[in-house]
Amino acid sequence: MRFIAILIVLTYALTGSLSLAQAVEKAMVKQGLVNVQEVDPSILVELKYSTTDNFVGKDVYGDLTRAYMQPMAAKKLASASKYLQTNHPDLRLLVYDAARPRSAQWNLWNALPNMPENERQKYVADPRKGSIHNYGCAVDLTVATKDGKPLDMGTKYDFFGELAYPSREEELLKAGKLTQEQINNRHILRTAMRQGGFSSIEFEWWHFNALSREKAKMVFRIVD
């Protein structure tokens, strides 16, 4: 099945009948992933790796504009969205990244050649092991107003450093490096995502997992 999906991508890319991004979408759908906005149309999407506004400074995804996840993960995201809107009617979830092909994972990994490997793995999973994004079970996102304006979280998406660490927020608040409003905004996001069934990580306020990598490996295949 995996080889069939890869063949579909290559065939459509070479014939020109579909763009590479469209072929990748077709392969993800064939593997059972779903467009999160078809599960919950109120969720906003701005894939940062389809822009130059990311740590690579390059467009990694091409014309891919829709966010895909495993159905169970998309349902959890819809649950988080519902919780957010129930408690904050003027706010919406804004997705920056969801399912990520392993080919893109290599691009991100190779963009940090001078960073020590143990440090690099804090921010980009080793493609040889696979990221939870590669299984369609992780999402990067923020909270925004209805018209798509992100709330102030203290750092941009893809910020590498302690200011982005949820584990250091109280310390950073006392040091005056984060404001109470910024931390409150992060709490709004984390609370909604945890209510939806996601877990957060230590180094990135924007990243949430629907499953552990070990469980994702047991249930799903990597999106190539």
Results as ranks from 00 to 15, higher is better:
residue 62 G to D: 09
residue 194 R to K: 11
residue 117 E to I: 11
residue 171 E to H: 15
residue 78 A to V: 06
residue 171 E to T: 02
residue 214 E to Y: 11
residue 163 L to N: 01
residue 82 K to L: 15
residue 94 L to W: 03
residue 81 S to R: 00
residue 1 M to G: 13
residue 164 A to N: 14
residue 187 H to D: 14
residue 73 A to T: 11
residue 192 A to Y: 00
residue 207 H to Y: 13
residue 40 D to G: 02
residue 28 M to N: 02
residue 153 M to D: 05
residue 43 I to Q: 03
residue 53 D to P: 03
residue 104 A to V: 10
residue 90 D to A: 15
residue 90 D to H: 14
residue 215 K to I: 01
residue 120 R to H: 06
residue 208 F to G: 03
residue 177 K to C: 13
residue 221 R to M: 13
residue 130 G to R: 02
residue 205 W to L: 08
residue 110 N to A: 11
residue 148 G to A: 09
residue 218 M to W: 09
residue 38 E to H: 14
residue 89 P to F: 01
residue 140 D to I: 09
residue 17 S to R: 15
residue 88 H to V: 10
residue 107 N to V: 12
residue 50 S to V: 04
residue 164 A to F: 01
residue 37 Q to W: 09
residue 57 G to L: 12
residue 111 A to K: 00
residue 204 E to C: 10
residue 100 R to W: 02
residue 93 L to C: 08
residue 66 R to P: 03
residue 4 I to S: 09
residue 81 S to L: 06
residue 125 A to P: 06
residue 195 Q to M: 11
residue 220 F to M: 05
residue 38 E to V: 07
residue 123 Y to W: 12
residue 222 I to E: 09
residue 161 G to V: 03
residue 196 G to T: 05
residue 154 G to V: 08
residue 86 T to Q: 15
residue 39 V to I: 13
residue 21 A to V: 03
residue 139 V to N: 00
residue 25 E to T: 07
residue 162 E to F: 02
residue 203 F to D: 12
residue 184 N to V: 01
residue 138 A to R: 05
residue 165 Y to P: 00
residue 189 L to A: 03
residue 12 Y to R: 12
residue 143 V to K: 04
residue 95 V to Y: 05
residue 84 L to Q: 00
residue 17 S to T: 11
residue 1 M to P: 07
residue 16 G to N: 08
residue 21 A to I: 07
residue 150 P to V: 00
residue 17 S to E: 14
residue 193 M to G: 06
residue 49 Y to L: 15
residue 219 V to C: 12
residue 179 T to Q: 11
residue 13 A to Y: 12
residue 191 T to V: 05
residue 22 Q to E: 15
residue 135 Y to F: 15
residue 134 N to W: 07
residue 128 R to P: 01
residue 216 A to G: 08
residue 28 M to P: 02
residue 132 I to N: 11
residue 125 A to E: 13
residue 113 P to S: 06
residue 165 Y to K: 04
residue 143 V to E: 07
residue 74 A to D: 04
residue 73 A to G: 10
residue 166 P to L: 07
residue 189 L to T: 01
residue 184 N to I: 05
residue 146 K to H: 08
residue 75 K to T: 12
residue 175 A to T: 10
residue 142 T to P: 06
residue 158 D to Y: 13
residue 120 R to L: 05
